[in-house]
């Protein structure tokens, strides 16, 4: 087991290395950052000098090596836009994104499971059909449009919820949270729904499908035959069996929720890492882009690692498979 974890951890490092290298190769095509760092009438020679000083004229590999050397010392450089250390900017923005991602995932899990179970048990009821229809909205309209529609309805027309930002936040050490204030909670509602809608659809469909399958398995039939109460069968046995893949998917999706928070954060001006990243892309702020990609990469790798380890623990057959290659 330990050898497996060590090996996977080394592979994870390799993944991060690859992410960084690809990212750096990509930045060359993102545009010229210097044009975003100076005013419109800054002369060309001035711009060239800045390029030179930033080392943007060096080969990509050299730039990457320089970046790695810094990153190993937890120095991720200075943001081109804000002239602040990137590590500091990202850590300031991280709580916002994590809170949003967690809320969205929680929302998706709770409603997804409830709706999924119901529509599996009452397959042909009107409510189940309605759930299916609602859940499909989550995948049939682009996120940005859903966000804008929510803003139009709840912020502009009804005036119930704020259209942007995080509301009042409370500082707990280095973490800032919006969960402890009324305005912070209100501000969290629409972005969470927007971000969670897609996951909710996914989970609902998954739960429904798994439930349907499980309900037809022999042991449920056997439980029925033993005369167990329907509710006990549904929730005690069927749902429990359904939840393992659901939690796995939800865990795997957490990473992509963080990645796709980019759009939600842009629409709601949510001051998280995704927004920082979008602004970085718009301004070719390479240090922020690189650090963000590495961070998201790290999150993914960790989630993958955990899921793989869990799989191995749960399913002995996989353990054999995973151990064999050396």
């Amino acid at each position: 087991m330990l050898a497996f974890i060590v090996r996977r951890a080394l592979q994870a490092l390799g993944v991060l290395f690859a992410v960084g290298l690809i990212a750096f190769a990509m930045f060359r095509f993102a545009g010229d950052p210097v044009n975003q760092m100076v005013g419109a009438d800054t002369p060309p020679e001035e711009r060239l000098a800045i390029r030179e000083q930033l080392g943007l004229n060096d080969p990509v590999v050299l730039q990457f090596a320089r970046y790695l050397a810094g990153a190993l010392r937890f120095d991720f450089g200075i943001s081109y836009q804000f002239r602040q250390p990137v590590a500091q900017l990202l850590s300031e923005r991280m709580p916002a994104t994590l809170e949003l991602a967690l809320c969205a995932t929680l929302l998706a899990l709770v409603f997804g499971i409830l709706m999924g179970v119901y529509s599996a048990l009452r397959r042909d009821s009107a409510l189940a059909k309605l759930f299916q229809a609602i859940s499909l909205i989550g995948v049939s309209l682009p996120t940005f449009l859903i966000g804008i529609l929510l803003i139009y309805l709840f912020a502009v027309t009804l005036g119930w919820l704020p259209s942007n930002g995080r509301g009042e936040t409370v500082r707990l050490g280095w973490w800032t949270t919006g969960l402890l204030t009324w305005s912070g909670l209100k501000a969290l509602i629409m972005p969470s729904i927007t971000l969670g809608l897609f996951q909710m659809t996914l989970i609902m469909r998954l739960v429904r499908a798994e439930m349907l399958e499980v309900l037809r398995t022999d042991y449920i039939r056997f439980a029925r035959a033993r005369g167990l109460r329907t509710r006990a069968i549904h929730f005690g046995h069927a749902l429990k069996n359904t939840l393992v893949p659901v939690i796995t998917i939800a865990g795997l999706q957490l990473g992509s929720v963080i990645a796709f928070a980019i759009i939600t954060e842009t629409v709601f001006q949510w001051p998280g890492m995704g927004l920082l990243f979008v602004q970085a892309v718009q301004n070719v702020d390479i240090p922020i882009m690189a650090a963000y990609l590495l961070l998201v990469g790290l999150i993914f790798v960790v989630i993958n690692l955990v899921v793989d380890i869990l799989y191995t623990v749960v399913d002995p057959r996989l353990r054999v498979t995973l151990r064999r290659p050396a």
């Binding site: 690859a18 992410v19 690809i22 990509m26 095509f29 992509s256 980019i262 990609l293 998201v296």
Partner: peptide, 19 residues
């Protein structure tokens, strides 16, 4: 696949677009 997943579709598109 892990590396791939790390890049949101949006980023991949931007990258390929640029290249």
């Amino acid at each position: 696949a892990d590396v791939q997943l790390t890049f949101p579709a949006i980023l991949i598109a931007l990258l390929i677009d640029g290249v």
